Amino acid sequence: MKSNRLFEIIYILLDKKRVTATELAEHFEVSRRTICRDIEILSSSGIPIYTDKGRNGGIGILDNFTFDKSILSEQEQNEILASLESLNALKYPNIDSTLAKLKPLFCKSDTSWISVDFSHWGSDDREKDKFVKIKSAILDCNIITFEYIDTYGKISLRCVEPLMIWFKEKSWYLKAYCRKKNDYRIFKIIRMRNICVCEQTFVRSIPTEVGEIKENEYKNINLELKISKDIEYRVYDEFDIDNISDDNNGNFIVTVQYPQNDWIYGYILSFGKNIEVLEPIDVRDKILQIIDDIKIKYL
């Protein structure tokens, strides 16, 4: 307890610049004599604390003092604060108070440089609440239950051990052990609803090979796409530069590998008139069929 009090006295002095022995005594609920002994210990340890007597006197610490200068380099201090800022943006518990203590100790300004919002555009507080519940369940190792809507619109009730929130290809996923399937699964968070955090806990860690599991077991296909130069911004935003070439007319030829499911057809159609599927032929034919079906609705 004493060592914790000594550390916090340094933090208070760095934060407030000057306090009285009475204020410290009231804060720690100890006597003024105890505080005076603490100040003597800190001074004898090389901490540059000074006291001023008189009406406006008090206990202070030299302005140019950095508590950990001999322990952590400038780069190490910045890396620690950057990591904590990242956790704070992800709403990790109790990080606010840690940052509040370390910034004065490191003599850093109170600048927030990162913000993370898990929800998609147009969503409401219920969508944000999903991530709060999932995060809490992962940290506390609680089972969660939820209704899940698969690619075909079928709804199933799932009971899982949540292990990790994962961001992939512009979407948020949950890596979990599904008790219904008795295997690891990846769930698209936007398709999860009515999430309930249970009191029951679990003991399981995430194996490295889970990262290779797909949301559903679809066969990957190689696509060759011709994309108009008019939407160049999308090409460089959404495809690896190594997969992009020129067709000598200013348009782009993109080769990419995707799972063959309903998502891929919607994605291709999102480019409108600015895309043409060159290969494979069956995907090209499927796109033509979808376009014909759409045309019928407008005739």
Rank of each mutant, 00 (worst) to 15 (best):
D110T: 09
R185M: 03
N4G: 04
Y298T: 13
S86W: 00
G153A: 08
W121M: 14
C36Y: 07
C159G: 01
Y92P: 03
E279P: 01
S228K: 05
I287G: 08
W172P: 06
I39W: 04
Y177A: 00
C196P: 00
I291N: 10
I61D: 10
E8T: 06
W113P: 04
F106K: 12
S45C: 07
I143E: 06
K103D: 05
I189M: 07
P162R: 05
E8D: 14
F65T: 13
A100S: 15
I190M: 07
W172D: 10
Y236H: 14
Q200K: 13
S205A: 11
L299I: 14
V256M: 05
E147I: 02
Q77C: 14
P48G: 13
K17H: 13
I10K: 05
G211W: 01
I47H: 02
K229M: 04
I47E: 05
R32I: 10
R5V: 07
L62G: 09
C107T: 14
L84R: 04
L6G: 08
D96Q: 11
I144H: 00
L139F: 05
I287F: 03
I71Y: 10
C159Y: 00
K273F: 06
T111F: 02
L13I: 10
F146H: 00
N194S: 15
F167R: 09
K101F: 08
K154F: 01
L163W: 03
Q260S: 13
E232Q: 13
P207I: 01
S270G: 10
W166Y: 08
N182D: 14
K181E: 12
P162Q: 11
I290K: 09
F187R: 02
I59H: 02
D246A: 09
E209L: 08
F167A: 13
N249I: 05
I61A: 09
S45G: 02
P162K: 09
D15S: 13
Y265V: 15
Y233R: 12
V235Y: 03
N194A: 15
K286W: 04
K175R: 13
W121V: 15
D183K: 04
S43D: 08
L299A: 11
R185Y: 00
Y92V: 15
N274E: 12
Y148S: 04
D129G: 06
C196G: 01
I227S: 09
L102N: 09
F131N: 08
S97Y: 05
L90S: 10
F202K: 02
I155H: 02
F146E: 01
L288C: 10
W113E: 12
R234C: 06
K91A: 14
L72H: 06
I253E: 06
Y148L: 09
L72M: 10
I195W: 03
N274T: 11
G54V: 04
E127R: 12
S171T: 10
N222P: 01
E215T: 15
K2V: 14
C141M: 07
L24I: 13
Y184Q: 01
I71S: 12
I294R: 07
S123E: 13
L42Q: 06
H27C: 04
T20G: 11
S156P: 04
D292F: 00
K219S: 11
I59M: 03
I287R: 03
L174Q: 03
F167T: 15
E224I: 12
A176I: 03
A82K: 04
E127G: 07
R18F: 11
I244G: 08
D262N: 15
K91Q: 14
C141P: 00
L72D: 08
D246L: 13
V203W: 01
I80H: 04
I143G: 01
R204V: 02
